[in-house]
Design a protein around this nucleic acid. Structure first.
Lengths: 236, 236
DNA sequence: TAGATTGTTAATCGATTAACAATC
DNA sequence: TAGATTGTTAATCGATTAACAATC
């Protein structure tokens, strides 16, 4: 009953976020030939208690066996299905700077069946060059290519000042899921999903913790000899 | 009263995460010479209602003027102080692959006073090379250098298989805040803060949305002409 | 059988939203 | 004064945790 409601409205976001981590834990169990994994073991990885894991997994067609745990292979393939990892997904990437280049070459995406199929940049000096076997195309071709190839995802790695315009181009090309690495928020129609990977904002929260931590724990034991040290000594 | 409690126990995590976005909105207002910004305007950027913004900002020493809004400059500098953006922070980075290289060269960190002061890698072919004016050092030097220079943050961009070991090295060097880009969870003592930037996991949740969205909205209007298209046509 | 672990219900906790008197 | 917008309290919503009967 509750399950049907969830199926319809979707799994709660925090639960969804944990699923890939459970999945990873299961892959490890399979590698180590452990046939069953308990909710507590699954939770250990993410730092959540077993009860949370069970609640999360109850949103899937359930699988656990009381007294035993979850069948690793079976649950893993349920998660693969749930997360859509069995489907091929194609993305375009806009902005071939250092970060764009790194993402285009990131080996981890392949495992999840994401292919970055085309790279775009405004810089005429970059257009025509090749990265990981893919030629860099001029930005004007993005919308049309995305539309004709039914691209499902757009990755934005342009500077913040250009991000909104690029997003609009992607949306014009029929893209409805945007992975935004530019340090800004995008204004998009409500049927478009934007996932912000805002490194600068994350850094700011870490900065807060660093600063406050200092205040909270004034005497740091065992942190160096107090003479300050100099960077130069270490340059080999 | 409530404020004191918050000051002591810290601002709720969701509020903290929004602060950098408010800060950015304020910087824009200052640039545009708008002296005051209302909570609704501040919220627009993050997609939260004004009431939420006001509640969030109430954790700071409050500043708003009824009927007018928040003084942009004043609130911005409160946020700078709160987020520790006025303090210089130093980081080491381990793992100079494509992603590590991109982060080392990322221009956005400087604004927030983060300096990546040293780069480390295990690969002897990389050691000795220079990135953004910083020489790459062998991993064995990480702990000692971090300790002597009182480095506050460690950035992990090594493969998942090496991440735990690198984290332990950083912790041995006195680092208590780790920004982890490896697709895995780290086991650390409880006084160490780990912020995971798990791109593979994020991708998996996006993958889920792409898949489910397909199911939810079966007929996609205006997405191409239906003949499928071919990538080759577009390669310039 | 005894021990382990499940799925689920109820209790708790925390964050968001609504509402409104205070005030610029 | 009238209109706008604040800070805060109370109501709502949603997620986490505790507890336990069911069961392998």
């Amino acid at each position: 009953m509750n399950q049907k409601r969830d199926r319809q409205f979707g799994v709660p976001p925090p639960a969804l976020q944990r699923m890939p981590v459970y999945y990873r834990r299961l892959m490890k169990a399979i590698e180590e030939e452990m046939p069953f994994v308990s909710s507590d073991e699954l939770g250990r990885g993410v730092g959540v208690p077993g009860a949370q894991v069970r609640k999360d997994l109850s949103h899937l067609s359930q699988q656990g066996r009381p007294g035993i745990g979850y069948d690793a292979r079976s649950l893993a393939s349920h998660l693969e299905e749930f997360l859509g990892l069995i489907n091929d997904k194609e993305a375009v990437l806009a902005g071939v700077g250092n970060l764009g280049r790194a993402l285009a070459l990131y080996p981890g995406f392949e495992r999840y069946r994401l292919q970055i199929i085309a790279l775009f940049d405004n810089d005429v000096a970059k257009v025509g060059k090749t990265i990981g076997g893919r030629r860099i195309l001029p930005m004007e071709k993005l919308a049309n290519l995305s539309q004709r190839l039914h691209i499902q995802m757009g990755i934005i790695t342009v500077p913040a000042s250009a991000a909104q315009e690029v997003a609009e181009t992607m949306i014009a090309g029929g893209i409805r899921v945007i992975w935004n690495f530019a340090p800004c928020r995008l204004a998009v129609p409500e049927d478009v999903l934007v996932k912000n990977e805002d490194l600068a904002a994350e850094l700011a929260t870490l900065s807060h913790h660093i600063t406050r931590r200092k205040v909270a724990m004034p005497d740091e034991v065992g942190r160096g000899d107090g003479d300050g040290g100099r960077l130069e000594e270490y340059l080999c």
